[in-house]
Write a protein that binds this DNA or RNA. Structure first.
Lengths: 203, 203, 203, 203
DNA sequence: TATGAATGAGACTTCATTCAT
DNA sequence: TATGAATGAAGTCTCATTCAT
């Protein structure tokens, strides 16, 4: 009865340990031995559950992206206002970084340099995310909810804004208030930082 | 005189080769052998100029940051308008990425994971840059050139916006028009993407 | 009674599986896991019956040699003619190879290289077999049934002749007719391949 | 000038050491470390000359077979009598075993079990050798130099006879006199061990 | 008795660095 | 100064064996 669960839980134990170690040392500095010690098991045991160090990382990445996608909350109902929807997006992202610091470090840090295949996979993930985001904005423009700016440019910008927060939160240990911060970020994005009383700016 | 120059030029030859290799393979995948071949010299010769692989990277990073700082153009005269100043900043950044793709990849990619010391150094560099940026915005607020938003938040946001463009440019090969893009980015940052005819938004 | 038999039959089950696997992959390429799977039992169970992989091989070898000795049929009555006796010998050998291909592969192949002790044991077996064979020929000479050739040399030769057939039969899948082949081999051994009409050759 | 030679001589140094170790311990028992020590060099140096342990063995095998083929002396002029030609063959083989004990052990011992590819290669080598031998006998029969026996059978037999001597020579340390032994072996092969005065034997 | 998850010793191989030339 | 052959520390992964269930 419990076999499947035990095997699964051991897998998770190993993955948790690996996340811990990978996150703090980076992939190449992390030794399988360390991961085993962190997990409180023998070195060989890892290989009962994962065929190689690279595969172990890969599984972590996949699971992480899955979790992230879930938190990113693109699924919000279009019934809400654009501002609302952006805020949910941003808040989801910030909350994820806050709640999964080690994971965050791994998926946003050094994906690219480890393995050619992994590099492509990560780039693909990025592209996918950007495509969804771009679609998001294109829809908003069509619906007349925002200015008709260059969506590609905007997408990259917003992606960057999100990305920029993980390091201060995780590395700099910034105890950010996700909701409040999301509100402010969204506000800046919606209305900019310029003074309002510049009536003819874009005339 | 000539000796010193030759020595210097050989150093640069090696660094150029290393930038090439590091950029395309990442630090750990890059072998000293490859760098030597790329430079057209013997493997041992590298060690006549750099004490170790890590030091070689470090020197590249330092020089790169120096060059970047120069391009980043924070030195612009405060006589210009805020919007102007921001645009110059952004454009300088984009141009740097465009003009120094290999370098860009190195300094913005996998700094952190290689070495504890390097990690700290890179983080320090980031903090410094953010401090200057934050100062920049605080000054602007004091001078009444922009809304009094949370400068820390804004700094991270703008840093992220800049950061977000290197990958599309370098990896995705986006032939971006630095000037035009900088204009649009600045525009969004100044006035946001929201529709203007929301008269009482911030009342 | 039943227990002993069950234990015995399980031993044989394991040995049969091991013969299968050892034969096809060689000792070092064979994993205990594979043997267990082949036997349809758990990996740990093998260790209930055999103390180690090496011991398992050793038992197989011993049993095999025993079986081989039996087939080799040195026990034939001296009442038969020398030619008859040799033919029985040869035929017994060929039949054994034909009937026990997996076993044959194991005992004639890579005995020596696995373990120093096993190496010595196998060499000893070989020496014993050769001694019996040499005795066989010495007796024949004493009884005036054959030419007084160097029996050591002859023994090695005949041993080699026998040995040479296992690979074509087992590996090359030669469907040899044991009886007919034994007849021809014996004939060549008795009378050689030279032409008979060399009247004064041995005068 | 000497570079090529030095590299070649280092290769040979390593191969000689490897032959030594492989021969005495068998492939699997031989550690790269031991080979390095035997060669009086560092472990890593072997990999400057051979890409892997398996490749090292393979090169030894190839070179050995080449040398053996040369010694096997199938190139003898057909002007000699069949008996003479056989004797040269046998003597060449015995001399090779005598002169290259370690090599002999390697090529005649445990080829098969190490690697699937190597296994096939070695079997192919065996087949080639047998084909040449079979041709040899078929020619002899056509020329009326010997009885019209089954050449396949005879080939295997003679191959076995040759094969049978390596172990006594190498392992048993038999100080065989190649010439004298070759004479006796050939004699037995040509005229058999049976008594001559059995006039109607094959009537 | 039977099992198979866990183990860790040990092997191959890599590659930054050294140093004799 | 320039070189590249030599090195060996260190890391990943294998698999025979153990032992709690």
């Amino acid at each position: 009865m419990a076999t499947g669960n035990m095997r699964e839980s051991k897998r998770e134990l190993i993955m948790a340990a690996a996340i811990q170690v990978f996150s703090h040392k980076g992939y190449h500095q992390s030794k399988m031995e360390e991961i085993a010690v962190e997990a409180g098991i023998g070195k060989g045991t890892i290989y009962e559950y994962f065929p190689s160090k690279l595969q172990l990382l890969q599984e972590i990445m996949e699971q992480s992206f899955h979790l992230y996608d879930h938190c990113f909350g693109m699924g919000i109902s279009p019934a809400f206002s654009l501002e609302e929807r952006i805020k949910v997006l941003v808040q989801g992202h910030l909350q994820f970084c806050q709640d999964n610091k080690d994971l965050t470090r791994i998926i946003f840090l050094d994906t690219d340099v480890i393995d050619e295949e992994l590099r492509k996979w990560a780039w693909q993930k990025r592209v996918e995310k950007e495509q969804r985001l771009q679609q998001f904005f294109e829809t908003a423009i069509k619906r007349g909810e925002m200015k008709p700016v260059d969506t590609r440019l905007l997408t990259v910008m917003v992606g960057g804004i999100l990305m920029s927060f993980w390091a201060p939160i995780v590395v700099g240990n910034w105890q950010i208030q996700a909701e409040s911060a999301a509100q402010q970020i969204t506000d800046i994005l919606m209305r900019g930082i310029g003074l309002d009383d510049e009536p003819h700016q874009q005339a």
